[in-house]
Write a protein that binds this DNA or RNA. Structure first.
Lengths: 145, 145
DNA sequence: CCTATAAAAGACATTTTTGTCTTTTATTAA
DNA sequence: TTAATAAAAGACAAAAATGTCTTTTATAGG
């Protein structure tokens, strides 16, 4: 498998797409998002539903409805998406799956992993959901295939 | 889930345990390994069988048989285990799951991910299977729970 | 050769992930 | 109020990951 789960990959791509459209004041439907990020529409629906419950994105039903992200939401870090989907263990757990592992009682890879995870966390916390909006709108960056 | 799959976690722990015992010239049975690294014995059997096919560990059947690692094998990097189990995409694929993603046509997270993956690769390539043997034998490091 | 041992192999079972389809609910606009 | 729209929700289905159990094969030692 990849680094993140499929669910997380779809979520990251979808949220970035919705963010870019939101910055133009547009709401977007599941179908459109799925087409643009190349994901199964109904499956994506479930994912967005969950992200909506978490408050990471917003949605309204009915005509002119769809998914969007409030201005403040565009400033949130990608880490919020990853944590919502992969859970905290992905970013903070022991690399070897040992529950006892800690600074005082480390597993063989503890120090090396600590370093890697720290960088991953920094990266996911410094990068915001709306950070790529302009390039996505311009078409310099794309999210499909 | 964790950073690696369960299968990979078990593999890393098991190979380290077998390595430590091998450095003392001992062969070990599935049951013993499973007990010491806290994993389901039969499931671990399949994993070790695969690692054996890949030549990462050795085994002999029958009395006095079991799993072991040749001296040269102790020098191999942990990356070999991770790649054997997770595949190359885990260490080299696009973080957002985009197949087009490359240096020339990067995804939004390409540069940041490149950095993280590079560090992960360095870590897994510089660390050898036999690196923790002494501490494991002394009991300074453990591999269960 | 015979027996005990231990991995290899194969057949399943369970759980989680991923994906599809249908029905319900909320909202807008005519 | 009605019709159309679009997300929410629920019921399944398929595939992959994880786990268990049984049978087969290879080997050492008596």
């Amino acid at each position: 498998m990849g680094f993140f789960s499929k669910t997380c990959e779809y979520a990251l791509r979808a949220v970035m797409y919705i963010a870019a459209q939101s910055s133009d004041g547009r709401k977007v439907g599941i179908k459109e998002v799925a087409d643009r990020i190349n994901s199964p529409a109904h499956f994506l629906g479930k994912i967005l539903q969950n992200l909506s419950k978490e408050g990471l994105i917003q949605s309204t039903k009915g005509p002119q409805g769809g998914f969007y992200i409030e201005p403040d939401g565009l400033k949130r870090p990608l880490a919020d998406i990853v944590i919502a989907i992969e859970g905290t263990r992905f970013l903070n757990g022991c690399g070897m799956g040992l529950s006892y592992c800690s600074q005082e009682n480390p597993c063989p890879l503890h120090d090396d992993f600590k370093e890697i995870r720290a960088r991953l966390n920094i990266m996911l916390h410094k990068t915001t959901i709306g950070q790529f909006n302009e390039k996505l709108i311009q078409g310099v960056l794309t999210l499909n295939k």
